[in-house]
């Protein structure tokens, strides 16, 4: 109920605080959530991936996340510095369905917020909610270490409720993953992102430079 109520306020919020204000609001929500969940430390990638599978990491709040262990991210020396992860269902799908059943239409401000975010922050949002959880993931990675190294999270691809997709080509080039491969992942997953060690010397990045 709370989520549907908040959505009914998007229009109001956009009118009062402006589209930019709404983005700032949602970003702060994502940031606060990440801060409140706390810190985590893992001995290595296997322990992180097991924790993820068992729903023990901060990322698990988003639902069923699969570690695509066949898609390791490697650095220039060939060492594994991260993996690709995929979320089965967008966390906002149930909210969107609840809106359809109880209210009807999703406010136009939803699209306006997503477009503004794509133009001013990064071109990865399919709806206004992407602002919250992309910010959340990016912030939460700062609170997690694997082998004593802080992580970073990179948004790679996502599919919106209406089937529209966003693929972050430049980010994929940096980690050396073929965009077409990630596109095929969207057939089965709603959101694909990479979690890797911050500052790693990536193979794709070096080649691009």
């Amino acid at each position: 109920m709370l989520d549907v109520a908040l959505v009914s306020l998007i229009k109001n919020m956009s009118e009062k605080a402006g589209i930019e204000g709404a983005i700032q609001y949602w970003s702060r929500v994502g940031e606060n959530l990440a801060k409140r969940i706390g810190e985590e430390a893992y001995m290595g990638w296997p322990s992180f991936n097991v924790a993820l599978k068992e729903g023990r990491t901060a990322y698990s709040i988003e639902g069923n996340v699969t570690a695509l262990t066949d898609l390791a991210i490697t650095d220039v020396d060939g060492d594994v510095v991260g993996y690709i992860y995929a979320l089965e269902e967008c966390v906002f799908n149930p909210t969107i369905e609840r809106i359809r059943y109880s209210v009807g239409e999703i406010p136009d401000a939803d699209k306006a917020v997503a477009e503004e975010y794509n133009n001013t922050v990064q071109n990865t949002a399919t709806c206004n909610f992407c602002v919250i959880h992309q910010k959340f993931r990016s912030e939460v990675s700062k609170n997690i270490t694997v082998e004593n190294q802080v992580l970073e999270c990179v948004q790679l691809a996502n599919r919106g409720f209406k089937g529209d997709t966003k693929i972050a080509i430049r980010s994929l080039e940096k980690i050396g993953i073929n965009p077409e491969y990630v596109r095929s992942l969207l057939r089965n997953y709603a959101c694909v992102y990479g979690i890797l060690m911050k500052g790693a010397r990536l193979r794709g990045k070096e080649e691009a430079e």
Binding site: L2, G30, L33, I61, E89, V91, Y101
Partner: peptide, 27 residues
């Protein structure tokens, strides 16, 4: 809404719920 789907919708998206509470606390 079909009962089965209603029950299913009631079980998902902890992310949104928790984020919404924190949003209210921010206010």
């Amino acid at each position: 809404m079909h009962e089965e789907r209603r029950a299913q919708l009631g079980q998902h998206n902890p992310f949104v719920d928790v984020a919404a509470y924190l949003f209210l606390e921010d206010i």
